[in-house]
Each structure stands twice: as C-alpha cells, then as structure tokens.
C-alpha cells in the first residue's frame, strides 16, 4: 500500500536521516522523497515522501515513532491507484436514479444523457474507481444493468 507521508523536519543537519529510521524499521520502501529546503517555515522544512508499507499498521507504527521523536506529521494518506472508465447504458431504466443512488466503490466524474431519438434512453457515465476494485465494480455495474433490463457497453 502506498502512502503520502509529509513531515516537518527541523532545518538542521542529520534530521532527515533520523526520520528515515522508523520507516525502514517498519518495512517501508521509499518510492520518492522531496525535501523542500527552499520553503522553510519557522525553522522547519516540509519533507514529502511516498512510501510503500506492507499494511496500514506499519504506517501507524511509523507515525507513532516519528511523533515520539518530536517530528510533526503534516499528512499521512493512502495513495489510491484509480482508473477512469467510461460506460454507456441503454435502456428504459431511470437514469437519473442511477446517478443519485451512485455506484458502489466508484466516483461519478461526469455523465451525459443523449437526446432520446430512440425509445431507449442513453446515458454515458465517466467513473473513477480504485484500480484494485475495478473488476468488482464492473461486475456490479453489469449486474445493475441486467437487473434493470438495460444494455451496458463497457470498454474492452
């Protein structure tokens, strides 16, 4: 699991090295590190790290150790790898209702309803889904369309 971990370090030599120790201790693999020395504030420098931890627990233990060392945690958030996909629904279903109810695991980024020339209504949805939940979400979408008697057209 990847995390965005931003900490505030005192602008003194050796502080960064000290801060990296708990990360290593709890199995964190540092993917990137940005040491913003040009933006010090009250003698502190923000350091942004992207760290891959085996689990959330490892991150929490690292944060706890960093705090015990007197290091301020500015941000600690999971970075969720997301996929954007487009789906087209054709049917008599209440398309407004689908948008209002939402889709499990997915964030609706955009939608477009066509001028109904045919009997069936047509809705284009653009959704954002955590990549690890993509298959599950697509299956949910398929089931939802099937239960409403709509045709769903998904990307290859």
């Amino acid at each position: 699991m990847k995390f965005d971990l931003t900490i505030a370090l005192a602008d003194r030599p050796g502080q960064l090295l000290k801060a990296l120790k708990p990360i290593a201790k709890y199995g964190g693999n540092i993917i990137s590190i940005i040491h913003e020395r040009e933006n010090p504030s009250d003698g502190f420098v923000p350091v942004s790290l992207v760290v891959d931890f085996p689990s959330k627990w490892n991150l929490q233990k690292t944060i706890s150790d960093l705090r015990n060392m007197g290091i301020t945690i500015i941000r600690a958030e999971e970075i969720v790898d997301t996929s954007r996909i487009i789906a087209i629904l054709v049917g008599k279903a209440n398309l407004k209702d689908i948008i209002q109810r939402g889709i499990k695991n997915a964030k609706i980024i955009g939608f477009e309803v066509s001028d109904p020339v045919s009997e069936d209504a047509c809705l284009k949805l653009e959704i954002e889904v955590p990549t690890r939940l993509l298959d599950e979400t697509l299956e949910n979408l398929r089931r939802m369309a099937e239960s409403e008697g709509s045709l769903i057209i998904l990307p290859i």
Binding site: V90, C122, K124, I153
Partner: peptide, 18 residues
C-alpha cells in the same frame, strides 16, 4: 440490436467506437 444511434454518438464524443 439494442445499440442505438445515441449510444454510438456518445461513444464517438469520447473517442470510442462501439
């Protein structure tokens, strides 16, 4: 059979063909 002109036109706007 249920692929409509509107579905194709919406897909086209997003640079897809059905």
């Amino acid at each position: 059979r249920r692929v409509t002109q509107e579905a194709i036109s919406l897909a086209k706007k997003s640079k897809f063909a059905i």
